[in-house]
Design a binder for these strands. Sequence first.
DNA 1: GAATTAAATCGACAATTATCTAATTATTTA
DNA 2: TAAATAATTAGATAATTGTCGATTTAATTC
Lengths: 190, 190
Amino acid sequence: MNSSELLEFFKALADASRLKIIGLLAQETFTVEQLATVLKLRPSTISHHLSRLAKVGLVSARAEGYYNHYRLETAVLEKMAHRLLSQKTLPAIAADVDLGAYDRKVLADFSTLGGRLKTIPARRKKLMIILRHIIKDFKPGIRYPEAQVNQILAAYHEDTATLRRELVGFGLLQRERGEYWLVEEGRSTG
Amino acid sequence: MNSSELLEFFKALADASRLKIIGLLAQETFTVEQLATVLKLRPSTISHHLSRLAKVGLVSARAEGYYNHYRLETAVLEKMAHRLLSQKTLPAIAADVDLGAYDRKVLADFSTLGGRLKTIPARRKKLMIILRHIIKDFKPGIRYPEAQVNQILAAYHEDTATLRRELVGFGLLQRERGEYWLVEEGRSTG
DNA sequence: GAATTAAATCGACAATTATCTAATTATTTA
DNA sequence: TAAATAATTAGATAATTGTCGATTTAATTC
């Protein structure tokens, strides 16, 4: 299931005339001329709508002389409804979306060209993004004395005390007896 | 379920940007700003899309400070998918459509102002409509001699023999020993 | 209290598309 | 074979709407 197929499917149903056509074809087959008369539209307009519906497989035609009897493909409609109910379909729509773009934007907004912080974000959500970036400078399994922590943080902002405190507060860094170390991923210290 | 509600629902989903929003919200909540960054659109555009989605109940917002955290209302989506699977939903869409319009048009096309037939339709589908109109002149339970049948049919067309034969052929009139009578509705003579 | 920020609203513009008329194709009737 | 009919296609127009920039509102930070 391509996400653009899904879009075309919804676009096919997102028109009052086409919805009425679907409703009529749900009851019996119709020719273009019949639909045109009943819906008070020109045959060419009906043809246009039917071709859009046919493109996504919702209707099909059976030729009989120069008549085209159109019928609703209920199986296609049902399959689509089931797809909507599936837990996998929706997230897949946004699979190609670059989720990291927001983090990069926040990082860029608060950073100078040299990679230092212009200010420390006030909003916790953005602060978290910044801190998760800074924490990459710390290696797992190593115990850092406070002086060394400050040295690392000074590369980002002069207010190393605030950065240090927030890193601990957000649960990214752990502290004991004046030493700091990286909290292992997936674990929380409570 | 109003049919215009159904239309609005499909229209809400019939846009690439809104589908992506739905896909993202299926994974976690997002703020307007986040969505704008990730989808590379202006916040005002995102606001517009979210309000359309909210109008049909597909998303809802939880205010937190001046942030609005939007979330997907999966229950609404599921309910709609189930509606689509229901046998009653689709025919109901076309409930207000005047199905008799086609019959009236065919009748009008082949009739003079005086109610006589200009020609006898060659197409069986249209002939059937004409015959079903003419048959109303026959009362149930009465046996008509051929002369009287011809007299009734002569009001429509001079070629009474053809009309008579087609009425029998289409199973509307029954014949035996030179007498004709109305075939009871719902019964077939094979 | 002043400045900042997220979100919503408004007005304008551009792109899409539903609908029509006219022309074309394919099939049937006379 | 010629005339008629159902359907499709092509071209044109009008309406809808997705997107943007600018403004406004509401909440937060300094």
